[in-house]
Design a binder for these strands. Structure first.
Lengths: 139, 139
DNA sequence: ATTACTGCAAAGCATTTGCAGACTG
DNA sequence: CAGTCTGCAAATGCTTTGCAGTAAT
């Protein structure tokens, strides 16, 4: 993750610091969303204190660099680079692995909320189930 | 909400207390999910302390009487009676009103996670947008 | 009576914030 | 150098828990 490549991402007027570079780098090299704590653990503290990581994640989110999500009944927020690829997730109920879903059911769907005159602007879909590996292990 | 009707819901081996009756009654008469705090406020303290409400909600959830959800970027858990009606929600981005969606896009959809051999057992869908009232108010 | 339930207060997480010092541009 | 960012520690908001007292069967 050399600085040149990262600089492509960098928004105007945002200072480059070791911590921010580090957080961006980790996000760039991960394809599943991470919690702030996971990022903290995964960076060997190069990304700074936990509070700094939270601040950086909020900054990135505001600048449109990252997106924040929540998964199921978990209470920790997940962050990932915004790759603009309209992703959804399947979550394994056994090992909690997170798997990207390639296609989206909403593409050809018009939700029936018209009677309320609701203007749909986006959606969030999450599949629950059991991943192949865990399924095999089941008796 | 007389006791007779509520007793239909009551699971075996669970004691009937004023607090539990009260929580069940409020849930029964509401069609949008509520937070523990909302329940607390709405019951005039008949449902007991906040910690009791949390305990009751967890009990109901374990007994299959209620279901727990999370909405978008909110961090508070929502609870509602489990009416087994496969509901989804549309959430207004302005006033945060929650509206039930009548039909489900997943009915005729097979998600493309087969390559991972993922066994889909359920899903969660949430629409984001602006409700009719808020839309009108926008300049 | 026995056993389970409640209230209170304190503890636990994830996340946010105040402030003084450190670093970027 | 000026303005911003970071670290630390304390504060917050939601939720859980320990314990002693209270109520249900």
């Amino acid at each position: 993750m050399d600085a040149k490549k990262l600089s492509v991402f960098w928004p105007e007027g945002v200072k480059k610091t070791r911590q921010r570079r580090c957080v961006l780098s980790v996000l760039k090299n991960t394809d599943t969303p991470l919690t702030a704590a996971e990022l903290y653990g995964r960076t060997g503290k190069d990304a700074g204190s936990l509070s700094t990581i939270y601040r950086i994640l909020e900054l990135f989110t505001q600048k449109g660099l990252a997106v924040r999500t929540f998964i199921l009944d978990s209470d920790a927020a997940l962050y990932e680079l915004d790759r603009h690829d309209h992703k959804h997730y399947a979550v394994c109920m056994v090992c909690h692995k997170i798997i990207a879903v390639k296609n989206c059911p909403m593409e050809a769907f018009t939700p029936d909320v018209k009677e309320d005159n609701f203007h749909v602007m986006g959606h969030k879909l999450e599949l629950q189930g059991i991943c192949g590996e865990c399924y095999k292990k089941l008796a």
